[in-house]
Computed example of a mutant assay.
Amino acid sequence: MKIAIYGQNIGKKNIDYLNKFIGYACDHSIEIYIEKSFSNILSSFKEFENLDFPVISHYKELTKDFSLMFTFGGDGTILSAITLIRDTGIPIVGVNTGNLGFLATFNKDVFIQKIDQIFNRKLYLMPRSLLWLKTSILYDHKFFNFALNEIVILRKETVSMITIDVYIDNEFLTSYWADGLIISTPTGSTGYSLSCGGPIISPENNNFVLTPISPHNLFSRPLIISDHQTVHLKVHSRVKYYSLSMDTRLISLNKDNELSIQKAPFYIYLLQEEKNTYYKTLREKLLWGMDQRN
């Protein structure tokens, strides 16, 4: 078996868990590859100063013969990791050493207890849909055109609102006068969209959510559409550029750049403890039911 390990940072208090995990993998003759930047971070700790595993520095090195990718961090770490995984179908095991952890659902203590089940793939594999972006003007080739959580259009270098014309399958929907617009997957519905008043959608649904950001219209509300539809956007602004974010990645685009957004032709797969863990996660992370009356 061949596995990959990815992280963006790790605190000293979590080193022991990672050390136990690597020890287990070595004892079971599992091949370990570590993302290059994370390998450099680990080598700064005395426990890993003699770290001697092959590294991955480019997405092309993460081939389909890898069985699993383990991410150590929070949800942002997983969002960054998918730029390596792309369409390989390699499942992600998200070990939560961060804060919230909607995607990184394995608590580090539970992770160690479940390690045999994880490697034997006896847990539930949850597919997550992504957004796929096409633009009318070529953008930086280094900017990956897919997102697991959301695509966000935001005003840039101005305090004035922007106007976003929205078309659904070539039919005009409306023009949002707002600070921006969020197009979210069900996975991303508990992120930025939620903080702007958007609904929570369980990940097995085939939907997108359009959530305006601070709209200058009392009747502008989030809209749920089928993910079989294509969203086309035209942006009007008093300045030349607007901001576009895709998960954790941010660029500036010329306002003449129109956007077309649809469902990506592949999924990201997350290994989870059980099929219905999403609702348990909602209760725990959003503190649902945390009332003295309950």
Score class of each variant (00 low, 15 high):
Ile3Pro: 08
Ala4Phe: 05
Ile5His: 00
Gly7Arg: 07
Gln8Tyr: 05
Lys12Gln: 14
Lys13Phe: 03
Lys13Val: 07
Lys13Pro: 07
Asn14Gln: 09
Asp16Pro: 00
Tyr17Met: 13
Ala25Asp: 01
Asp27Asn: 15
Ser29Trp: 03
Glu31Leu: 13
Ser37Ile: 06
Ser37Asp: 10
Phe38Glu: 12
Asn40Ser: 14
Leu42Ala: 15
Ser43Tyr: 04
Ser44Phe: 06
Glu47Trp: 02
Glu47Tyr: 02
Asn50Cys: 08
Asn50Trp: 02
Asp52Val: 01
Pro54Ser: 07
Val55Asn: 01
Val55Asp: 00
Tyr59Lys: 06
Lys64Glu: 11
Asp65Lys: 08
Asp65His: 07
Asp65Cys: 13
Ser67Gly: 04
Phe72Val: 13
Gly73Thr: 08
Leu79Arg: 12
Ala81Lys: 13
Ile82Asp: 06
Leu84Arg: 05
Leu84Pro: 01
Ile85Met: 02
Arg86Met: 05
Asp87Gln: 11
Thr88Ser: 15
Ile92Asn: 14
Thr97Ser: 07
Thr97Asn: 08
Leu100Cys: 10
Ile115Tyr: 05
Asp116Phe: 13
Gln117Gly: 15
Gln117Arg: 09
Phe119Gly: 09
Leu123Val: 14
Leu125Trp: 03
Pro127Ala: 10
Leu131Arg: 11
Ile137Asn: 13
Ile137Arg: 05
Leu138Trp: 00
Asp140Ile: 04
Lys142Ile: 00
Lys142Thr: 09
Phe143Leu: 11
Phe144His: 12
Asn145Arg: 15
Asn145Trp: 00
Phe146His: 11
Ala147Tyr: 04
Ile151Ser: 06
Ile153Met: 05
Ile153Tyr: 04
Arg155His: 11
Thr158Asp: 08
Ser160Asn: 15
Met161Glu: 01
Met161Tyr: 06
Ile162Asp: 07
Asp165Met: 08
Val166Lys: 07
Tyr167Gln: 11
Phe172Pro: 08
Ser175Met: 02
Trp177Lys: 14
Ala178Met: 05
Gly180Met: 02
Gly180Pro: 08
Ile182Gln: 08
Ile183Leu: 14
Ile183Tyr: 02
Ser184Ile: 02
Thr185His: 04
Thr187Phe: 02
Ser189Asp: 01
Thr190Phe: 03
Ser193Arg: 10
Leu194Met: 06
Ser195Thr: 13
Cys196Tyr: 03
Cys196Gln: 15
Ile201Pro: 00
Ser202Met: 03
Glu204Gly: 03
Asn205Val: 09
Phe208Cys: 10
Leu210Ile: 14
Ile213Asp: 01
His216Pro: 08
Pro222Cys: 04
Leu223Ser: 04
Ile225Tyr: 03
His228Asn: 15
Gln229Leu: 05
Val231Cys: 05
Val231Ala: 03
Val231Met: 01
Leu233Pro: 15
Lys234Ala: 10
Val235Asn: 04
Ser237Gly: 13
Ser237Glu: 09
Val239His: 10
Lys240Gln: 15
Lys240Glu: 15
Tyr241Asp: 13
Tyr242Pro: 14
Thr248His: 12
Arg249Cys: 07
Leu253Ile: 11
Ile261Thr: 05
Gln262Ile: 01
Phe266Thr: 02
Tyr267Lys: 15
Tyr267Leu: 12
Ile268Met: 06
Tyr269Arg: 14
Leu271Asp: 02
Glu274Gly: 00
Asn276Lys: 09
Thr277Cys: 03
Leu282Glu: 05
Leu282Asp: 03
Leu287Arg: 06
Trp288Ile: 13
Met290Arg: 06
Asp291Ile: 00
